[in-house]
Amino acid sequence: MKNFKLPLLTYIVLLVLGLILQFSFNAYIQILILQILMYSIASMSLNLVNGFTGQFSLGHAGFMAVGAYTSAFLSQTFPAFLETTHLFGFFIFSLIAGLIASFFGYLVGLPSLRLKGDYLAIVTLGFGEILRVFLLNIEPLGAARGISGIIPYPELGFLDRFWVSFAYVSFWFLVCLVFLWRITRGRYGRQFMSVREDEVAALSLGLSTTQIKVSSFVIASFFAGVAGSLYAHLISIITPTVFGFMMSVNIVVMVVLGGMGSFSGSIIAAAFMTVMPEVLRSLQSVTGIDLRMILFSLSLILIMIFKPHGLLGEHELPYFLKKMRRKKV
């Protein structure tokens, strides 16, 4: 446990923060905060594939869909289990959601990871689209209607639903952050980066690049599945179209905007990308038309041209804090 002092401490701080949030913000802001945490999990995990391993996946929303549908289907099928086990039941469902998503990650990854760059992007995009077509046609999973009325996280005594959801989602958020942070600072991080930098050289040093790529893909899909499961129970309704191409693009943008190889960047970008559309919503009352998507796509192009390395580049937040402190001294 002594190796988890900092994460545990952070978690306790987050739990207290949750209490403050519970009493000081309305439900609209609260759900935004939960979404930020959920999208952070998705974007951090994609950063492992796109940023560290240098592979380009455009189908992350597909793995989220697998997780969301798994969790939703399980909770519809075994509601009594959730009644009796409370959060533990949700935890089990999230875990299964993640495992099934990572199995899909393995299936997609194994044959397609010998492809490079654009081609891999297209195959992962294709995976997402095929999945969508299938989900649209599977009646037990609600076909085009999707699944609605998904059981939300419970209340516990005087702790309301928001606090419980917040505690649960931040738990996964921290697990994801600490897991990815730590594995990328050691031999596995070096393995992922060696594939990104030069596959031929990596092979000559005895590193099995295929295996490395597949494991990066599998880990990322696991957390995407977990994020999908969180989405299902937070939003209560899922349809095949929600997890389409646009969501995948959104997550890729979070990764690139935050900085490839920077997990803290992914979190900041996830917050930005979740809050911005809501802020811009007020703009609509002025202009009378919805310009948000046009602004979104336009800023995408401008960011790529003028800030190609994203907000933090490949560095983490502490790097910049240290630099600032050094400047002061």
Binding site: F179, R187, M193, E197, A202, L205, L207
Partner: peptide, 29 residues
């Protein structure tokens, strides 16, 4: 063919990988 974007030290460390055996969970824990 060095790993150009990585540091000199990292380049050397990667080359030691086949002598290492700790798992993903060892680095997590």
């Amino acid at each position: 063919r060095l790993f150009k974007g990585l540091t000199v030290l990292e380049n050397a460390l990667i080359a030691f990988d086949q002598n290492m055996s700790y798992s993903l969970f060892d680095s997590f824990l």
